[in-house]
């Protein structure tokens, strides 16, 4: 399912029937259930959800980075190539080259004992077969592109010598080295200060415009989504509960959870202070989900059918879909 403006092109990423399970002493925990979506070339897909929604685990499955007790089934195709559970050698031809990932904490993907130069050139030398000098030159250019001042000098530094924002830029530069068609950004600005977050968001927006790469933006912050995403998927309890073009998600949410999330955020542009609307209860416990709709025990509109039967994700037309038994919801004022 793609939005009209991107539908003409073959998707960069196509996920179908993805299930991710984690084996724990208390039994299997299903972190991702029957997830299917596609990202078109040049499209930015926002994936929103709270802790335990499975939003990160989808992409850990895609990248083949699941924890040892996790296993994924279904289908993940990157520009047509099936990569789910592919052998590491095959995976490595895709990872880093055709798609790459950046994380909330850049230190998790930067080796603290190697200089940035060494880490960046290594990628280019393996994937592109460049020589040392050419690789270094390309790396410096990439650092300049992510607006790191004095890139030529700073490339010889170690990750800890960069500030948080600069480190995130370094990580983005590394992710872009091989010109991936898809960048997976997992909470890329969550650990950063607001003013630095604004810089990184600006950078991502600019890169998106200039390179035309697709971005999967995983975040809990609807504000970040609003600025960057073309289309949004809302996750709850391991399932997609709503997907829609970005304007529709904010203007006419069709799932009570999406609606609740929007209303429970204090906003800088609100007029007068009213009591915040809340979503009652606690975030879902994946080990003990309610029967039927996972959201029903926190849903203000839940009725009998919600406990009896889990709503399927059904299309509403115009690139929208939702998983809810209710009649369609009205417009948000």
């Amino acid at each position: 399912m793609t939005t009209p403006q991107f539908s003409a092109m073959e998707p960069v990423l196509e996920v179908a029937g993805l299930n991710t399970l984690f084996a724990t002493p208390e039994g299997d925990v299903r972190a991702v259930s029957d997830v299917a979506f596609a990202i078109a070339r040049g499209e930015t897909l926002g994936i929103v959800g709270e802790s335990g929604s499975g939003k990160s685990q989808i992409f850990m499955s895609v990248m083949g980075l699941l924890a040892r007790n996790g296993r994924a089934s279904g289908s993940v195709r990157v520009t047509g190539t099936e990569i789910l559970n592919a052998p590491v050698a095959e995976l490595n031809r895709v990872r880093g080259a055709r798609m790459s990932m950046i994380f909330q904490d850049p230190m998790t993907s930067l080796n603290p004992y190697l200089t940035v130069r060494r880490q960046m050139t290594e990628v280019l030398m393996t994937h592109k077969g460049l020589g040392e000098e050419a690789a270094a030159q390309a790396s410096i250019e990439m650092l300049e592109r992510v607006q790191i001042p004095e890139a030529g000098r700073r490339i010889g530094m170690y990750p800890h010598e960069f500030s948080g924002g600069m480190r995130q830029r370094v990580m983005i530069a590394m992710a872009l080295l091989c010109g991936p068609e898809l960048l997976i950004a997992d909470e890329p600005t969550t650990a950063l200060d607001v003013t630095v977050q604004a810089q990184i968001l600006d950078l991502l927006m600019q890169l998106k415009r200039d390179t035309g790469m697709a971005i999967a933006l995983i975040t809990h912050d609807l504000g970040v989504i609003a600025g960057l995403a073309d289309r949004v998927i809302v996750m709850y309890g391991g399932r997609i509960v709503e997907q829609a073009p970005v304007r529709d998600i904010f203007r006419r949410p069709q799932h009570p959870y999406t609606e609740g999330l929007l209303k429970s955020m204090p906003r800088l542009d609100e007029h007068g202070v009213t009591r915040l609307q809340t979503i009652g209860g606690q975030p879902p416990n994946l080990q003990n989900l309610p029967s039927g709709c996972a959201f029903r025990d926190r849903c203000a509109y839940a009725f009998d059918l919600c406990a009896a039967e889990r709503p399927d994700l059904t299309s509403l037309g115009e690139g929208r879909a939702r998983a809810c038994h209710l009649p369609q919801l009205g417009e948000v004022a």
């Binding site: 968001l201 912050d221 609807l222 609003a226 800088l268």
Partner: peptide, 21 residues
């Protein structure tokens, strides 16, 4: 710098992006 959860406002608003860290 605070992102506003509204795509129209968020994309249209004037930004003061500070330099540096």
């Amino acid at each position: 710098a605070v992102p506003v959860p509204d795509p129209d406002i968020e994309r249209a608003k004037p930004r003061v992006v500070l330099k540096g860290d």
